[in-house]
Design a protein around this nucleic acid. Structure first.
Lengths: 223, 223
DNA sequence: TAGATTGTTAATCGATTAACAATC
DNA sequence: TAGATTGTTAATCGATTAACAATC
């Protein structure tokens, strides 16, 4: 059951579907702010998001009262409130584990700081990589990973190792006290500790969803 | 409404949530096949997937009757049937648009052939890249993109351009007759043609979902 | 005040699941 | 046949939305 707590917009537990919608509101509001939009009505936001106005109002009302009847929502306030809810001001720290091609790309290209995350380093087993630096991020020996995580109080691990090593690496991370795993290994990790948060980016499942939709729309075009 | 057609397991329209579950069944079954498992019961599969046995049976029964009462599901049959539904045997062809770091990583690392997709080439505007080859994939001038897609009958575009160019690139692809877009641009594309399928991989939304969950579990630990 | 839009309620809609007859 | 597990039904559960009183 969803409850507003005395502080305002925090809730006891958010359904994952709603939580993912929240991230979409946030990125959409972010874009609108850059276009200097000042207020937005639930009807407009709904159109931009491809949803119903009722749903938008219901979603936002879950976390607080951000709107003014008769005027709509103040964009800056709504943006700031969602940022708070999404943890963007929490300054989480992260390490990347498995510095292959994908790992290097993420280190070099992803704007972590925009999302309140500080990338503190990366780990790999390859002697060729250990000691090198990618976009200002040091690659360290995986042997020192656990100590680093514990000593630095790292909360998030970005898991980019090979599929075959994924579960083992995840177990080790959980042992080291990691709180969240951003999982790029195309594997569903089995994590018994319910307090550890896992967020998957499964390239293969995503492509399969695409081809399945294509397959269905080809074999049975909508009338 | 879901209907089985005379051919068996095709259905008129699958809810997207169920479709994404199907991809998870498939990758799980794939892993089990490699472990030489021969049959599996709904209860076991449910445990492995973290769902209820009822849901598993309901999902699978949507597409056909793959199980034997008293014995469970034949893994090879189920795997092959899901492969068919997911379009893995359709031999879709694809081009990658925007050969930046992420594009190069996808070209070089993603096992397209395992998912029934053939990567026919890549496009970029940079003279440095045009004419080069990455893992056997030719990088061509974006100017020839539309003609190539039309002439070769390419169905899928893998969109890896910068955020600012995402919508324009998508419009051009749709104009060229592309049927599906695998969208890595961290932008929700606006596509008016309902027959064009879009599948998003939004790194930023995914990380936000992770930090939001961390934020909630920290401020309000489960009892 | 009059007009507009929110937050919320109550009704609808769809998804999940427990239970069981059918079946291997 | 007896035992086991499926596919399906009916009940439960939760999410979506239309409608509207509250409010700016």
């Amino acid at each position: 059951m969803i409850q507003k707590n005395p502080n305002g917009y925090r809730s006891h537990s958010i359904p994952q579907a709603q939580l993912h919608r929240l991230t979409e509101y946030y990125t959409k509001l972010d874009a609108l702010l850059k276009e200097n939009v000042v207020t937005i009505k639930s009807v407009e936001l709904a159109r931009l998001m491809g949803m119903s106005a009722s749903s938008v109002r219901a979603d936002l009302a879950t976390f607080g009262e951000f709107g003014k009847a008769g005027h709509g929502y103040d964009l800056a306030l709504l943006h700031a409130s969602l940022a708070e809810i999404l943890g963007i001001n929490c300054r989480f720290s992260a390490v990347l584990v498995g510095v292959g091609k994908l790992g290097q790309t993420i280190i070099g290209s992803f704007p972590f700081s925009q999302y309140g995350v500080r990338l503190k380093g990366a780990f790999d087993v390859s002697p060729k990589l250990i000691g090198s630096e990618i976009a200002g991020c040091r690659v360290m020996d995986a042997a020192g990973q656990s100590d680093f995580i514990r000593e630095e109080g790292v909360q998030i691990a970005i898991l980019c190792v090979d599929k075959v090593n994924a579960q083992r690496a995840a177990d080790s991370l959980v042992q080291s006290g990691i709180q969240g795993i951003w999982n790029f290994t195309d594997t569903n990790l089995v994590i018994t500790q319910p307090e550890v948060v896992v967020e998957n980016i499964h390239f293969s499942n995503s492509l399969l969803a695409l081809t399945c939709n294509l397959n269905l729309s080809q074999t049975e075009p909508l009338i």
